[in-house]
């Protein structure tokens, strides 16, 4: 199995060194094209006017926020089922990125909603689900931070991630149900506008750019996490040697 070749962190770090420059270059190119297209090529939407340009970052952020959770759920399976040593590194590295993406999605959504719907926030099913996703990302990050042992924290977070993955569809369904029950008086057109090809192209390019950015950040954060664990292991070794000269190094916190 090819994925097991990279169970060795050193080999993984070497692979990252090779891939990363290409990914960064592709990401920068995609952003350049995407931003150019979304500002200079895409026409104004006849309904939304220029605010449609917010969609070019809002929609990719929303897609990637969900993709990030899927990656974390798959990584959690990797931790619990296959015990792959990099799986919990991947899950831990993805959580802050996912939180940042959901945050971006929420803020841009609010900024789009104000001119379009006349309010920053509605308790719409989709918005509420993203808010719940945001809280779950933050909760997972808090769990990672509070547990000292990264292996135990990884397993605990993996269980919570998988329970969350089971729960998210149920939450989405129940919020949908709740929302139809409490339909607000002024019915807002909540489904997205039909997309014209002139807008679809910049949207897809921006989605590609954000995906590449996600993988760049994810790989870099994973590399940091591998290094952090190495530092931690070395500090523990230094502490176990218990030479007075190393007391300085162990006085610092492990994180």
């Amino acid at each position: 199995m090819a994925i097991w070749d990279y169970a060795n962190p050193t080999r993984f770090l070497r692979l990252v060194e090779i891939i990363l420059p290409w990914l960064i270059a592709a990401c920068a190119a995609a952003f350049a094209v995407g931003l150019y297209k979304s500002f200079f090529m895409a026409p104004e939407d006849y309904q939304q006017g220029d605010t449609v340009r917010i969609m070019f970052i809002h929609v990719p952020a929303a897609w990637l926020a969900m993709m990030c959770y899927s990656i974390m759920a798959i990584s959690s399976l990797g931790t619990l089922v296959w015990k792959h040593p990099l799986a919990d590194v991947s899950a831990k590295a993805a959580a802050p990125i996912g939180a940042a993406l959901t945050f971006t999605c929420l803020v841009t959504g609010a900024l789009w909603g104000k001119p379009m719907w006349g309010t920053y926030w509605v308790w719409d099913a989709r918005l509420t689900s993203v808010l719940v996703l945001f809280i779950m990302y933050l909760g997972l990050m808090a769990l990672w931070r509070t547990m000292e042992d990264p292996i135990k924290a990884g397993k605990a977070a993996a269980i919570l991630t998988l329970v969350g993955a089971l729960n998210l569809p149920i939450i989405k369904f129940s919020v949908d149900w709740w929302n139809t029950l409490h339909q607000p008086a002024s019915v807002i057109r909540l489904d997205g506008p039909t997309i014209h090809p002139d807008m679809l192209v910049p949207l897809l390019v921006m989605a590609l750019a954000f995906t590449l950015l996600f993988f760049v950040l994810h790989l870099m954060a994973m590399r940091n996490e591998v290094l952090r664990r190495r530092v931690r292991a070395m500090r523990m070794r230094a502490a176990s040697v218990a030479a007075p000269a190393t007391a300085r190094a162990t006085a610092q916190p492990a994180e």
Partner: peptide
């Protein structure tokens, strides 16, 4: 922390 982790799951 437990409350923060559990509350989102109890929404349904």
């Amino acid at each position: 922390l437990m409350a923060v982790l559990v509350i989102p799951l109890t929404i349904p």
